[in-house]
Design a protein around this nucleic acid. Structure first.
Lengths: 211, 211
DNA sequence: CGTGAACTTCACCAGGCGATGAAGAAAAGA
DNA sequence: TCTTTTCTTCATCGCCTGGTGAAGTTCACG
């Protein structure tokens, strides 16, 4: 039934493109082009709004090749979505520095990370997954695991949960304002300016006096 | 298949507008049911993810009726979207009270308005319009007109734009956290708690000392 | 060379989509 | 009553969708 070679990780022996002893036929290149194109289109138009044929056309490939490599449209999406779990390096430093100045660090990391990642706002995940429920659950888990969990570990006050949640509100608000809706002057502000503006605010949410 | 002979329950709309003498056959009811169903489905699945047939089925109506009343799918969407410009009453009071305590008022109005409106987050507009670009521009304009513009009129400091933008970040963050992603404990918090937590924060963004 | 696997193309299907047009059925107006 | 307007249904169109199967085509390897 399915003859699709889905587990591509088995043959990850390519150091450089077309490096397979002289030359290789081209299969991996096509696969990669489909993958890149699909990721771009999924982000732009969402899952339902992206057709396999459109991906194939944009990648300069026959539509059947998409099914040859990924089996189904869901398989293609799964292959694209899997590659999105690869930016833990800088995040650790944010929380490693302790509670002092964590506000500035968290804002700086968020903004710089997303800024340089070629228009890849986290919130785009929301329009990314097959169903909205799925994508929302995905993003909620991510936030809880990577941000809330670690922040909560730094606090031991009784209202830690609410304080952390207020930080989440800041992060979500900045992300939506700057990257999704592009509201001025947030969208055009420099990273430094956002850090000075919101760093103190986040710090206040964590360690300041709350009503 | 079935044509349920209309249960005449609570048709509160026409008082006398199209005063077609006493009762009317039923057309307006069908129209309204299609409209309500469509609005719900558009919000849940977006424009592309909602089919005319699904709307018709959920409304208990023949698909052709949708086209009879609204012409095209875009026409249906337009009819649904147009009704979203009908909540200016409470908003005016927020800004009429002056700068003092505007933070609490704006949070309270936002939360209570959205809470009681049967799961109708503003940010849902993002997944609402035919294209994402359209919906984003729509929402951006709305925010600028209804919130930023009025807030800016209350301030005359040189950094008014940034202060207002920071308020927007709060509002967007709360909306996304509470209604879209449903992050705890924001999602389950009472309106009063959110007002006390974020009211002061918003007020600080507007009138407090900024770095 | 030949064989066979990896890759590519093409023809095609079943189904759902938005949309149309004509034929009913029920109330309004005469 | 008959006629007209309004609403409802049904059959159908053309298009595009995700997906399949079978032919090529190109290369590695014996």
């Amino acid at each position: 039934m399915k003859k699709s070679p889905l587990d591509s990780s088995a043959m990850t022996e390519h150091g450089s493109p077309s490096g397979r002893r002289g030359r290789w036929r081209s299969g991996e290149q096509s696969r990669q082009r489909i993958l890149d194109t699909a990721r771009s289109l999924f982000r732009q138009h969402g899952y339902g709004g992206t057709t396999v044929r459109a991906v194939a056309a944009a990648a300069g490939v026959d539509p059947a090749m998409v099914f040859y490599f990924f089996g189904t449209k869901q398989g293609l999406f799964a292959a694209v979505a899997d590659m999105s779990a690869d930016f833990p390096p800088a995040v650790d430093e944010v929380f490693a520095g302790g509670l002092d100045g964590v506000g500035e660090r968290i804002i700086r990391t968020l903004v710089e990370l997303v800024d340089k990642s070629d228009r890849a706002p986290l919130a785009t995940i929301t329009r990314f997954a097959p169903t909205h429920d799925q994508s929302e659950a995905l993003l909620r888990e991510f936030i809880d695991r990577e941000i809330s969990g670690r922040l909560r570990a730094l606090l031991d006050t009784p209202d830690a949960a609410m304080r952390v949640a207020m930080v989440n509100v800041q992060l979500l608000g900045i992300t939506v304002a700057r990257y999704v809706l592009r509201i001025e002057p947030i969208a055009s502000a420099s990273a430094d300016e956002l850090v000075t503006r919101f760093g103190a605010l986040v710090q206040h949410c964590l360690t300041g006096e709350l009503p």
